[in-house]
């Protein structure tokens, strides 16, 4: 990762914030930034991972929580790039579900850990909670969903 000016893990954190649409507090709050940094590096291989971090460094995202229209277009281009589309989707899936996804129902798919499943951002995205964890409490399912949303 010698070609990078910023610390790779900081770039990965910014990348994660902008790709998932969650705040820095949400991302850091999972306690999984380092774990996922290591997972992605191991799974993609150093070369592709560095290329992604390089690309994100070049985009110079000023505010990852609220990317400018220009930054958003640049990320969209990144996702449209044949070299990056799959790895970027895999990073989003990892954050959303805790699972490293090689392909639909691929036997190589795996969930990184129990924690990674429970910290899957998809549950926050749908204003729910992971099935089988972070229980909201007795009777809460009877309330309208507005009182339950975690999207603040």
């Amino acid at each position: 990762m010698k070609s990078l000016k910023k610390k790779p893990i900081d770039l990965f954190e910014n990348l994660s914030i902008v790709l998932t649409g969650f705040s820095k507090a949400d991302i850091v709050g999972t306690g999984l930034v380092q774990t996922y940094f290591d997972t992605v590096k191991k799974e993609l291989g150093k070369e592709i991972f560095e290329a992604i971090l390089n690309a994100i460094e070049n985009i110079k995202i000023s505010n990852p929580e609220h990317p400018s229209d220009k930054n958003a277009r640049q990320i969209k281009d990144l996702m449209g790039n044949i070299n990056f589309k799959t790895p970027v989707s895999q990073i989003i899936q990892l954050w959303y579900t805790g699972e490293w996804v090689v392909g639909t129902f691929s036997p190589e798919n795996y969930i990184v850990s129990s924690e990674s499943y429970l910290e899957g951002l998809i549950w926050k995205a749908i204003a729910a909670h992971p099935m089988g964890g972070k229980q909201p409490g007795y009777g809460t399912w009877g309330f309208p969903p507005q009182t339950f949303t975690s999207k603040n």
């Binding site: 902008v18 790709l19 998932t20 969650f22 996702m79 959303y96 639909t104 995205a125």
Partner: peptide, 22 residues
């Protein structure tokens, strides 16, 4: 919800747009 995520990704959605769609 996992299939909804996959559908969003296949349309190159990410970030807040992806969240909102879900």
């Amino acid at each position: 919800p996992n299939t909804e995520l996959t559908d969003g990704l296949s349309e190159n959605l990410f970030g807040k747009q992806l969240r909102q769609r879900l």
